[in-house]
């Protein structure tokens, strides 16, 4: 499961979207950070095993990048000078990027909200939860918020200084899911860096719309098999 799939599970409620262009440059005050998150999903029931997964999350002005702990798979969002957001899935082992082209993004309902990308939750989602107490976590001041969304109990530990969650816990009758920040440091100080944009530019690029015509492509075949394998 990828980091955003997890967040989809946590928050399945619909909210009005802020447009990325109207918020242009509003992330310039957000500090550049490198984070490591861990996700744990514990389904109820005897035979269902807990699954754990770790990600890296990097943020700097105009770019958000994530990567699996093993470094094989990642995603990158870049905001261009005119407010468009370019989204690519990155397969680092194959040095290949899958692009979701602008012509197909509105068609596919892929409207991105830059604030949400940079902070994982937007203000509206945060304010849908009640502040419970102020505390400290990882040497930073934090704010605990709780609430019920779509029959799920949601608990968010928010770091206002960096505008990121230190944890998100979601519980319902099917189980418990938790996202926890394990480490956070300035981007300049981290030894695990995001993949350089220049390097990604040299990856092979495939438009997602072309998948149907690439059934014999070794990479496309492998990606299908890969994900299938990991979902079972």
């Amino acid at each position: 499961m990828k980091i955003f799939d997890f967040l989809k599970i946590l928050f399945s409620f619909s909210l009005p979207w802020l447009s990325a262009s109207s918020l242009a440059n509003s992330d310039s005050q957000l500090p550049e950070v490198a984070c490591r998150y861990e996700m744990k999903v514990t389904p109820h029931g005897k035979f269902k095993a807990t699954s754990t997964k770790a990600w890296f999350f990097w943020r700097k002005p105009g770019m958000v990048q994530t990567q699996d702990a093993d470094g094989h798979y990642g995603e990158i969002w870049q905001r261009t000078a005119n407010g468009s957001i370019q989204y690519r899935k990155l397969y680092h082992v194959d040095k290949t990027a899958i692009e979701y082209m602008p012509a197909d993004m509105p068609t596919n309902n892929m409207s991105f909200d830059w604030i949400k990308l940079s902070s994982m939750l937007d203000q509206q989602e945060l304010h849908a939860l009640k502040p419970v107490k102020k505390t400290r976590v990882l040497d930073r001041s934090a704010e605990l918020r709780k609430g019920k969304v779509d029959n799920r109990d949601i608990e968010v530990l928010w770091l206002p200084d960096v505008s990121l969650p230190a944890s998100i816990i979601s519980k319902d009758k099917t189980g418990r899911a938790e996202l926890r920040l394990i480490a956070i440091e300035p981007l300049s100080a981290t030894h695990r860096k995001p993949v350089d944009i220049e390097e990604i530019a040299n990856y092979r690029h495939i438009d997602a719309a072309d998948f149907g015509d690439m059934e014999n492509d070794p990479f496309v075949k492998k990606v299908m098999a890969f994900t299938e394998h990991h979902n079972h």
Binding site: L10, F11, N108
Partner: peptide, 9 residues
Amino acid sequence: ASWPSGSEG
């Protein structure tokens, strides 16, 4: 979804 990768078709 709350995560703005939203939909990818």
